[in-house]
């Protein structure tokens, strides 16, 4: 959770820097690289602690597909940028990387954190929406997290393990 908070803080600060730089001097590459490094470093760290073997053992097709689709979208935006999508590219690549972690992790807590990281990466895109939506969006995200914790704790009580593969054998 500390990592998640750190990730969100970095994205928030980078966003602030992005806005500041966009209006002031043209030092955008610094903000961009800092956000990119944080987005890649944190998931890489988590992947490392999850165990390298798990990446090959469990890569659900759908999560990988979503992640790769985001990366393709990023590539498209980078190569043929429609002017409106310019500022989205970074967020998309920032969201795609935690999603790869979601696809590869066997630990439900890490999966939940990965989804949160991806969501945090995309939320700054709503800065142009009314302020009320930020509050409501945070509330709904909080609810989804609370439910995630409830489900994981129920699963742990029911199956006695936090390894996702071992849950499947209980399926009726």
């Amino acid at each position: 959770m500390i990592i998640l908070a750190l990730h969100s803080a970095v994205i928030g600060l980078s966003e602030a820097a992005y806005c500041y730089v966009e209006r002031g001097t043209a030092e955008l590459p610094y903000a961009v690289s800092s956000l990119l490094v944080s987005s890649m470093a944190v998931p890489a760290l988590l992947l490392r602690t999850a165990g390298a073997a798990s990446l090959r053992e469990r890569v659900p097709g759908w999560a990988t597909a979503v992640s790769l689709a985001l990366l393709c979208l990023y590539a498209y935006v980078a190569l043929y940028p429609p002017p409106e999508l310019g500022k989205m590219a970074l967020h998309m690549v920032s969201a795609a990387i935690p999603l790869l972690m979601v696809a590869s992790s066997r630990d439900p807590v890490r999966v939940l954190i990965g989804i949160n990281m991806a969501s945090s990466s995309l939320h700054p895109l709503l800065t142009e929406a009314p302020a009320l939506f930020s509050f409501l969006s945070s509330t709904s995200m909080l609810l989804a997290n609370a439910v995630g914790v409830l489900v994981i704790s129920s699963a742990y009580r029911e199956y006695g393990t936090l390894i996702i593969e071992r849950w499947a054998k209980w399926r009726s």
């Binding site: 999560a63 985001l70 999508l85 969501s119 939320h123 929406a129 489900v151 129920s154 029911e158 849950w167």
Partner: peptide, 27 residues
């Protein structure tokens, strides 16, 4: 619990798609 967790992950990813779509529509 196992089904609920799978449902959570899939639908959370789907919510990300909706968020991305909404952001694109605004931009």
């Amino acid at each position: 619990p196992e089904v609920a967790f799978r449902y959570l992950v899939i639908t959370a990813l789907s919510a990300l798609c909706v968020l991305l779509g909404a952001a694109m529509a605004i931009l």
